[in-house]
Design a protein around this nucleic acid. Structure first.
Length: 306
DNA sequence: GACACGTGGAT
DNA sequence: TATCCAAGTGT
């Protein structure tokens, strides 16, 4: 249901951005995925957990881990009681396990500083570990219905095409993008929150990085990029991330062993995951420095108890 | 601003 | 098989 309860906008509103809201929000009402963190029972904690897990990670991989996580730790205080290593273990193979550590740290901070409730203010959210500009805005908007520009990769791509007329947004978020996002944000708080979720979903389902489906797009008729004939991206190619042979891959292998272990693991067991000793040692040191691995006397290692 | 940081499905 | 890509953050 999309009818606005506020004063109708001038029929000849000079800002064309207003004509994007209604069709995108209407499309969202009928096409939004039924995701668990969008259900009312998810609450702010569910929204926050989902946002951590969804950073750089597809929805399909997040779903099962999210369900287990919320069943085990239904409130921030439940997670805060656990050793950080338990969060890392439960994170499984989602990737970027530092997120698990930070989510645990955020739960501790919420328990200590906010009485166990996910804070409502953007600045308070931003102060939590693992929460940056995007996640703070997302939690404030999705969980609390506030008016914030929520600029993730999906929204940036939708804006790049619909408003700016280019195929892809810049590599890093620019001041111009933030300004545009603020300008496109509906005045009404509830509508702004709806717009944030709707524009993001449009980017995730229709206005995708590859094989965008303009035939299903509710604003195809107003899309600057499409109207210009969908010119191909110009400029330097976005630098692809290599993985094979990197420290990241070695870290992943080391941590996989520790996640599966129920007791401290001897150095020799870790040595088996990678044959190059210098890189192997560097990767292990990095994991220890990051707090993802705890070294014990006698050359033993485990996930951190504190 | 450039980099490091995991993982696995899709093309 | 090789690349690309997925709701970013911290340094």
């Amino acid at each position: 249901m999309t009818a606005t309860t506020s004063t109708p906008q001038a029929p000849d509103a000079p800002d064309a951005s207003h004509s994007l809201h209604a069709p995108v929000i209407a499309w969202f009402e009928s096409h939004a995925r039924d995701l668990p963190w969008r259900r009312p029972e998810a609450g702010p904690w569910g929204v926050m957990v989902s946002e951590f897990m969804l950073q750089q990670t597809p929805v399909s991989r997040v779903l099962p881990v999210y369900e287990q996580w919320l069943a085990r730790w239904p409130r921030p205080a439940d997670l805060a009681k656990e050793p950080p290593g338990e969060a890392v273990r439960a994170w499984g193979r989602l990737g970027y396990p530092r997120r698990a550590l930070r989510l645990h740290g955020a739960a501790v901070a919420i328990t200590e500083r906010h009485g166990g409730d996910v804070p409502r203010k953007h600045a308070q959210l931003l102060a939590l570990p693992g929460i940056g500009e995007y996640t703070a805005a997302a939690v404030a908007s999705f969980a609390y219905g506030q008016r914030h520009a929520v600029l993730d990769t999906n929204v940036r791509r939708v804006f790049a095409r619909a408003a700016t007329g280019v195929q892809y947004p810049p590599n890093a978020t620019t001041a111009a993008e933030r300004k545009l996002a603020r300008a496109l944000l509906p005045e009404d708080e509830e509508r702004a929150a709806r717009w944030a979720a709707a524009s993001m979903e449009l980017g995730a389902l229709v206005c995708t990085a590859k094989n965008e489906d303009c035939a299903r797009c509710p604003i195809a008729g107003q899309c600057t990029w499409r109207l210009a004939g969908k010119p191909a991206h110009e400029g330097p190619a976005r630098r692809g991330q290599t993985y094979a042979g990197t420290d990241r891959q070695v870290r992943g292998k080391l941590l996989a062993v520790l996640r599966e272990a129920v007791a401290p693991v001897p150095q020799a067991a870790l040595d088996r995951v990678w044959d190059e000793p210098v890189q192997r040692a560097r990767a292990l040191d990095g994991l220890v420095s990051d707090g993802l691995v705890e070294p014990l006397p006698g050359g033993l290692y485990r996930l951190p108890l504190s």
